[in-house]
Design a binder for these strands. Sequence first.
DNA 1: CGGTTCGTTGAGGCCCATCAATCTATGTGG
DNA 2: CCACATAGATTGATGGGCCTCAACGAACCG
Lengths: 261, 261
Amino acid sequence: MIDVQQAEGSSAHSSQRSALPLVNTRLWNSGFLSREEQNALQNAVSPARSVGPNIDLVREGDRTDSLFIVIKGWACRYTTTKDGARQLPALLVPGDVGNLDSLMFDRLDYGVRTLTQATIVALPRDRALALAAQYPGIGRTFTWAALVENTILSKWALSLGRRSARERLAHLLCELSVRLNAGDGNESSFACPLTQEQLADALGLTSVHVNRTMQQLRNDGMVETENRTMTLPDVAGLRRIGGFDPDYLHIKSPAQTQLAE
Amino acid sequence: MIDVQQAEGSSAHSSQRSALPLVNTRLWNSGFLSREEQNALQNAVSPARSVGPNIDLVREGDRTDSLFIVIKGWACRYTTTKDGARQLPALLVPGDVGNLDSLMFDRLDYGVRTLTQATIVALPRDRALALAAQYPGIGRTFTWAALVENTILSKWALSLGRRSARERLAHLLCELSVRLNAGDGNESSFACPLTQEQLADALGLTSVHVNRTMQQLRNDGMVETENRTMTLPDVAGLRRIGGFDPDYLHIKSPAQTQLAE
DNA sequence: CGGTTCGTTGAGGCCCATCAATCTATGTGG
DNA sequence: CCACATAGATTGATGGGCCTCAACGAACCG
């Protein structure tokens, strides 16, 4: 069995090369796992594998029997209408689970696709369910993860239904800033590999309009983009624009994460 | 202890008056509960209480330590932007859980409000968590319920982001028809207490536009409304319009529901 | 019968989509 | 090293779907 304690400190910020890929993932940081449960979960996942950009981990409507956890890189869930319009119900950053639904459903009604080169581990459904039944903390962690996703999705629905393009974009950028743990005083900066078309698919807009809206935010000094890096010089202002309140993300940074028991 | 077996048959379609209010709720019908687990869950909920229309069970941002399960009547989750625009992330019909999130989070970032006179039971968070830890089927049921909600919400996001008013309305009506188990060949009919303004808040539209869109669907012979009853004379046609595919709802009708083990 | 809620209708306007072209950066093969 | 191809960002012109504002009708109710 892998001993978590031993390697934990040194690998906290380089999980992609670690033998402990789950460190700092959402499941790991739920706060419900005892050390024993962390070990059990760690031992259940497949070795990390590297995947190129724009590769489907699961296609829309496909069957799968594994959960895919993003260790490094970005991915997304995508859905399409019968006319081919695309809407992303989720952006996945390191630590996120791509398809929690596969825990319960054979068939996914969305696809999961990498956006960048990414490192992925798989957790077989059977093992996940067995662990959930055996360890209360693991079962609780799955429920918690599903509910966090639900919360994020509710906010997206609010944006899609009721916010202007400017507000939507501001809100999403604020959300990403927090989820990537990229805060630093009132300024935030993070690598954002999304094309404007991908942003548009997340925001329910066209890429043309995302472009114009982004320019407006740039002119207002709220955003700087340069070489796939997104800088938010005035996070407080951007939050005001987007009506963003970070509490809903239920983020537990590594520092806050506690072991159960 | 209440004996489920005894009363089950006779109360299948009158759960609101039964001493077994959970019969036919989403949790109950997950298919993961053994008879013992069903009993345990049943014994954990408060007595059913009747609530008037437009009453908040939980206000936006409030703390609560109970899950509210809708036994009879309709309710909704609601969220608002800072400007006061309202978006419903969920419509709740009999059997739905209003605030699964309260299982894990102290504070709700949406409100739960009745739309009609409703019968509600409460499940205290502490007891729910204890049951989930003790009975694997109950833990699994919570996760399953959260994932079903997630799926529905993903579809709503697709509608909000990428579908026209006509498509959105068609899709929602199809969804409600299935969730209410109101099918009957190619025709469907169900009591729908929603005002056009409430529909608008679910669909991310204005009530004026919902009105015009509804008229269009009526002219096309796709919808008939009369006295709070919604009739869909051509479900297949409406599904085509909305791009609706019922599989995603993961409905388990009472007939299909099986006991675990 | 007056008040309230809800549905309906009309006029006008804006936000964002659509279509299309141009520009830039990057990469690739000869 | 350049010609070329491709992906992505940018810009402009135009139009439409839906919003906004406002009024009116219909149903219900105390």
